[in-house]
């Protein structure tokens, strides 16, 4: 597998540059960018400070791995990221106010949620469970009065994500040299909601391929891995006539790679010609119109973004 390391210090700058460029280029998306931009930035800050994988050293069986058994499927304790609930109280203090400013409609709910987390009414473990979409979802009685289930799940998943992403960086490093040919995430088994074609510089003094390799990006832990270019990650179809890409002629580097056979699509940023690869969350955000267009045409994404349903 080839994973792309995210250099944390550059993350923030990258997000900011991408946001300001998107603001300038796509005024229509202004409100969306204003809402999610600060959230993405705050998440990056949290990710930078997060502890990473502190659990036992994992031993990966290359044979099983090459058959599609992702890293977390090979842990002794049954898979899943390490519990990060101990960090969530602190994280909530910075992240929830940012969210409140970004999403005034649920500001009151977020404030109530913040208070409940701070005073322990909502146990960090329960919060983490909500973040992973487990446990509280079916509960009739809201654990925090005045906070809707939807808001709780949204906030919790945003809180959990930086820790997950940081852990995934460490785990991905374990399998860097191993081949991975699946369409699901090599770290957590999640589905991709974004992809990118990157220039890959080969350390060779002769002709370089400028076509760019395709990386899929996990919707859950943001790990990126190489994947065969002309193929549908949902059904494996490789017939070029069946694989189309939808795009806005004005934005030639963005597209939705769709499969006519299985009706799935994944967003794709072709960064081969770009001087700088923008932050992929921001890039995905700017591709929301494309995502909507693809859905209108009857295609379904392999996985959603937090803003997909807006």
């Amino acid at each position: 597998m080839q994973t792309q390391d995210l250099e944390t210090p550059a993350d923030l700058r990258c997000i900011e540059t991408a946001l300001s460029r998107a603001q300038a280029e796509l005024p229509a998306l202004g409100p969306l960018l204003t809402a999610f931009g600060p959230l993405l930035a705050e998440r990056a800050r949290l990710r930078q400070a997060a502890p990473g994988w502190t659990g036992p050293k994992l031993v990966i069986d290359p044979e099983r791995y090459s058959q599609g058994a992702f890293v977390l499927a090979q842990t002794e304790f049954g898979g899943g990221f390490e519990d990060m609930s101990a960090h969530l109280q602190k994280a909530a203090k910075t992240l929830l106010p940012v969210m409140a400013r970004s999403f005034p409609a649920i500001a009151a709910e977020l404030a109530a949620l913040g208070a409940a987390i701070a005073d322990g009414t909502l146990a960090p473990q329960a919060l983490a469970a909500a973040g992973f979409g487990e446990g509280l979802a079916s509960s009739d009685d809201m654990p925090v009065p005045g906070v809707s289930e939807q808001t709780l799940n949204f906030a919790a998943s945003e809180l959990v994500r930086p820790f997950v992403e940081r852990q995934a960086q460490d785990l991905a490093a374990l399998v860097e040299a191993l081949p991975w040919r699946q369409a699901h995430c090599p770290v957590c088994g999640g589905a991709p909601n974004m992809s990118v074609l990157r220039r890959t510089a080969v350390d060779n003094e002769f002709i370089q391929a400028n076509g760019g390799r395709r990386f899929l990006r996990c919707s859950c832990c943001a790990t990126q891995w190489t994947y065969k270019r002309v193929s549908c990650p949902a059904c494996g179809c490789e017939e070029p006539d069946e694989l189309i890409n939808l795009r806005d002629p004005a934005r030639v580097h963005e597209r939705a790679d769709a499969c006519q056979r299985c009706k799935a699509f994944v967003l794709c940023l072709n960064s081969v010609e770009l001087a700088e690869v923008p932050d992929l969350d921001v890039a995905a955000l700017t591709m929301l119109p494309l995502e909507i267009q693809a859905k209108k045409q009857g295609y379904a994404p392999l996985a959603e973004h937090p803003w997909s349903s807006l």
Binding site: A201, N204, E205, F206, I207, Q208, N210, A275, E276
Partner: peptide
């Protein structure tokens, strides 16, 4: 095509 030039 030779990778002789980089920009950044």
């Amino acid at each position: 095509a030779m990778g002789a030039m980089s920009f950044g």
